[in-house]
Computed example of a mutant assay.
Amino acid sequence: MNHDRYEDGYVADVLKSVKTIALVGASPNPSRPSHGVMGFLLSKGYRVVPVNPGQAGKTILGQKVYGDLAEIPDTIDMIDVFRASEHVESVVDEALALDHPPKAIWLQLGVRNDEAAEKAEAAGIKVVMDRCPAIEYPRLLGHRHH
């Protein structure tokens, strides 16, 4: 798949099809982008599970933090990655090792790893790179009133 440009429908479908999101690289620091995006996703009704080995067992925005994806007891629909591009492959490998791999892996603004994306897509996982759900959600779904 060409990740230089996405059809709006593709991105909207990802956002509409997921309920539980693992946020890898979650930060307890309110000034960090991951903290703001986590708050945004929670406000939109998503269940967000923060993943950060250094914060495991603590809470961020009232949600229990896990050290890695394998520790999360629930099925994850999407992984939102706030890590540098060179760490994405290990996140994808961790995701593929889960009993129930996610439907989607989302890489935040500035994060791109085409090899990792190919590996995820080969396993049937949708990938969005270099985008932010807190920007895409209002743009694509914000005008809908349910």
Rank of each mutant, 00 (worst) to 15 (best):
M1E: 13
H3C: 02
G9Q: 14
G9A: 08
Y10T: 07
Y10Q: 11
V11W: 00
K16Q: 09
S17Q: 11
K19W: 05
A22T: 00
L23Y: 03
G25W: 00
G25H: 04
A26M: 05
P28E: 14
P33T: 14
S34G: 13
H35R: 07
G36V: 00
V37G: 05
M38N: 05
R47S: 10
V51S: 00
P53Q: 08
G54K: 05
Q55M: 08
I60Y: 07
L61T: 04
Q63L: 02
Q63S: 04
K64N: 09
V65G: 00
G67Q: 11
D68G: 15
D68P: 12
E71D: 13
P73Q: 13
P73A: 10
T75Y: 09
T75F: 06
T75R: 14
I76H: 06
I76M: 14
I76W: 11
M78E: 04
M78N: 12
I79W: 06
D80R: 14
D80Y: 11
V81H: 02
V81D: 11
V81E: 01
V81R: 07
F82M: 09
F82W: 12
A84C: 13
A84V: 14
E86A: 12
E86S: 15
H87F: 04
V88L: 06
V88R: 06
V88C: 12
S90R: 08
E94K: 11
E94S: 15
A95E: 15
A97N: 11
L98T: 05
D99H: 13
H100S: 13
H100P: 05
K103N: 14
I105P: 10
I105K: 14
W106V: 02
L107Y: 02
L107S: 06
L109R: 01
G110S: 07
N113T: 11
D114P: 13
E115T: 14
A117Q: 03
E118P: 07
E118V: 15
K119T: 04
A120D: 03
A122S: 15
G124D: 01
V128N: 03
V128S: 02
M129P: 04
M129W: 03
D130Q: 09
R131D: 08
A134M: 01
I135P: 04
R139N: 03
L140G: 07
L140S: 07
L140F: 12
L140A: 15
L140C: 09
L141I: 02
L141Y: 06
G142N: 02
H143R: 10
R144K: 12
H146V: 01
